[in-house]
Amino acid sequence: MSPEKGGNNQLEAKNRPAQKEPHRTADRLRIDWTTYGTTVVLVVGIIITAIFQPVFLTVSNIANVLSQIAVLGILTMAQTIVLISGGIDLSVGSNVALSGVTAGLLFLHGVPLWVDCFAALGCATAIGLINGLLVAQNRAHPFIITLGMLTLLEGIAELVTGGSPVNDMGALATILGGTIFFGIPTAVVLLFIIVVLTALFLARTPLGRTAYAIGGNEEASYLSGIPIKRTKVYIYTLAGVISGIAALTLSGILNAAEANIGTGLELQSIAAAVIGGTPLIGGRGGAWRSLQGVLLLGVVSNSLNLMSVGANYQNIALGVIVLIAVMVQKNR
């Protein structure tokens, strides 16, 4: 399906002899650094860390890094879909908290685990649906709508837990918090599946395509017959579902559920997506790109840990990385 072989060039060749041909290879060799900025930074980061801290490349450390980023990675997929559609979802972190707490409290009261999991997913989906309806029906910017939702959900989670964490998630801890074959953490496998599905969704489904379209130009999409409101409802609902999966994963890994467990995750997911190359303005980006942002954050914090850098310095370093990565992409 190489575009270069298309009929258009036959046509051009017919009409305009000896045009672009000599320059083709030069064009192809020309690398657009803004597209690969994150990849380059990521690879360089890995190499440097590996040189100074050989431990970094051990299997157990890699597994460690990956399981640390699994939850953020899953959540970033939710955020990526919303960002591409021209929106933003600040409530993903508090959604994780409330959905996790839902499962935890039900489990505490003796409800079977599988019911708890479905309840958590249902809760997360409902939150996404409400976000979607509010965003679709109102002219207010999704930033402020989901900010309201964030505060609201945090409040509810505090209220129902009474401020104290649920410290037992039963089998969830051994399933999602454990490993499957060859000692690979289940959460990492789950992350991989979610990323693949998100990539497939964005590239190959009509809804994914319309997400790009309305994020790029809502008016033109409307005039193309795309149901804008319905699309938005679907997008935010889907983000809710993915947040629910992140909630279960996090509860499993920690073997706990807590009202303030998701605090800051929303900003991290936005940062990871943007660093990876899914811009805030919508219409562009993708699952693999966003994943690179997540990996970069994970690698940096892991290498700082290995070098026993203090938490405050770590934050400073992370902030600098975010700024650098975003500046590299500025000129697109």
Partner: peptide, 9 residues
């Protein structure tokens, strides 16, 4: 440019 095409696609 404004109403017709989605420039990013």
């Amino acid at each position: 440019a404004r109403d017709g095409v989605v420039a990013q696609l």
